[in-house]
Design a protein around this nucleic acid. Sequence first.
DNA 1: CGCTATATGTGACTGAGTCACATGTCCCCA
DNA 2: TGGGGACATGTGACTCAGTCACATATAGCG
Lengths: 192, 192
Amino acid sequence: MTDDPDGTVQGPRDAAANALGALALVVSDEMTRAVVAAADQASTTDAAALVSLAQFLDGATLDRVHRVLGVTPSGAVRLVDRLERNGLVRRDAGPDGRSRAVRLTDEGRGRARDAQAARAAYLSSLTAALSAEEVDVLRGLIGTVMTGVVAHKDGGAWTCRLCDLTACRRPQGECPALNAARQTYGVAEHAE
Amino acid sequence: MTDDPDGTVQGPRDAAANALGALALVVSDEMTRAVVAAADQASTTDAAALVSLAQFLDGATLDRVHRVLGVTPSGAVRLVDRLERNGLVRRDAGPDGRSRAVRLTDEGRGRARDAQAARAAYLSSLTAALSAEEVDVLRGLIGTVMTGVVAHKDGGAWTCRLCDLTACRRPQGECPALNAARQTYGVAEHAE
DNA sequence: CGCTATATGTGACTGAGTCACATGTCCCCA
DNA sequence: TGGGGACATGTGACTCAGTCACATATAGCG
């Protein structure tokens, strides 16, 4: 690892790191674009809210929504206002008198499903060029890297906010991000 | 590849795709956070502008800035206004009377360097757990996947807007994203 | 010379998100 | 048992990035 005059670094290790950064940026851009379009939402947060609700957050309180999505409590209120205004979510009575349960309407659930399908389709198109062996290798490497990511991460939105939780739990055990995040955000077990 | 009742898909192929999506999302989140903090900018676009300017866009017109960053022309004007107000760029005379050249000040260049260093440090920490062989394998797989990404991508911001271009060009040839993007956005060759 | 395309800039607006603060509920502890 | 702090939600005022519609000015072709 030597520095060149600009202060940039070189070598295969850094080339890999740089490529990882580039790939992460585009994939996340495009994936988000696909999800937002499919869910017919204006903001990425709204789309993420729908997907999260559909997967493991349905019936959760506003408080949980704010933690998972990494916005302020008031931000969560506005967000749910928005979704409610569009008929995607309802505010039901919560587990106690202070809190309310945010629940998807059928319309909202449909939008979430569309979003998840769009995400899965986009991501599948990316791995389509890989052989079965390469897919396994990639999965292993991603697992290793993800462990490091999780170790560094201190706050912010939930790592798995757009994930397909059934896909990451099967067929080979659990995802490190899921485990780490679950306790941080106190997310309930997904109904099997 | 079979569908389960929810419409979600299963199998190792889809697990890998899902993991790729999850990894891309966090890495891009965290990387952006690191870059924005290091450049001391409020918005991610501003930080991306600084980094892009430093790498290959210095002296470019506002028009090019708008194309590379994927904002509207007026958005680019506001963006450059902001950076100028903070003493990070200057508007010099452009190649013709209509256009202006956006040029980094020393202060701006310093901020950009800080941002790039923060990005590199974060990404390196992620690959640190991998062996040299694993790094090579990962690099190869990322290259393959990136080719697919580039093929699907139709518009939006420049894929490499945060990249370290010297890292992706060496030591093994060029990055597919760089090649594809270069012609789309008409970005000038980076000064070697 | 006039016409259209191009580059930048401006005014009015939207929309997401924040902060500071208000209200209502919960629950522990004296 | 009731008082007080912690907690959940909600509201008002504001910020800030970004857009659209439009204005201005230059370029360059016929």
